[in-house]
Computed example of a mutant assay.
Amino acid sequence: MPLTSITSGMGLEVAPDVYCFSVQIVNVVFLGNPKESNEFVLIDAGMPGAEEVIIGEAIKRFGENCKPLGIVLTHGHFDHVGALQELINKWDVPVYAHPLEQPYLNGKSDYPPPNPKAEGLVAKMSPLFPRHSIDIGSHLQLLNGDGSVPCLPNWRYLHTPGHTPGHISLFRDSDQFLIAGDAITTVEQESLYDVITQKQEMHGPPAYFTQDWEAAEQSVKKIEALQPEATITGHGLPMTGKELQSNLKILADNFRETEIPKNTNYNPM
């Protein structure tokens, strides 16, 4: 896909063990402290064809013999699982996801068509984006209902649906760090200019692929109530501190007015 932001290929250490890496228009996250171990956990799997840059960045950060303990998916959209099959072919590790995302990861169901009538040029382009399911077979491990993630003992997952039925975010209570996936974004993902330049501005999930706006609003309110100190979102630059908290409050308070497309009853042909 030719769509690429100016930050593509750049990495940012947001905490000693939390590293955000931009792959074209989406972020993947490496969890693990390279000063302590060459083991890590990968959050999401980037764009199709991104396996070599993701593997290369893992080696650059964790060393030649590094290998993840697992891959955790916030959801199964193409820009979050694009390199997944190639990565598990290389690393042969479990992939953790919410049970409601299972049909999109075992080949049973495709995601619904996007809404190209949402505002913004990227929304107009969205019918060109892949929405088919993938099948990762026995590598798929479903998360249980207690919020735990087997390969991340210091983190818990939050079910934050709306963008997809089984969307999750990750939260670490010790430092109030949030990995939000696409439940929130820090760029107006519908705007081609903003995506390319990575202009920082908090929004809800990408409108063209969001399935349930009532659930999406409740997920934003759930996230805002956590009062996170730092976040990495699926799209956009990391945000921290008072800026993050104030922007989250504005988003939660005004979600219906600013985020939900006017044509929420869009019915694709």
Rank of each mutant, 00 (worst) to 15 (best):
P2A: 12
L12M: 11
V18R: 04
F21N: 03
G32D: 01
P34T: 03
M47D: 09
E52A: 10
K60P: 00
F62P: 05
G63D: 01
E64F: 10
N65Q: 09
N65T: 05
L73Y: 13
H77C: 06
F78M: 06
V81N: 07
L84T: 02
L87K: 07
I88M: 09
A97T: 02
H98F: 08
P103C: 09
S109W: 07
P116E: 08
K117H: 11
E119F: 11
K124C: 09
M125E: 02
S133R: 10
Q141G: 03
N144M: 12
G145I: 12
G147Q: 14
S148T: 15
N154K: 14
P161I: 00
T164M: 05
P165Q: 09
D173G: 06
S174G: 04
Q176H: 14
Q176M: 12
I179W: 03
G181M: 09
G181C: 10
D182T: 07
S191V: 03
I196W: 10
Q198A: 12
E201D: 07
H203Q: 09
H203T: 13
G204F: 03
T210D: 05
Q218L: 15
V220P: 02
A225W: 05
P228A: 04
H235Y: 00
T240C: 10
G241E: 14
K249D: 04
R256N: 06
K262S: 13
N263K: 10
T264M: 11
Y266P: 06
P268G: 07
M269F: 11
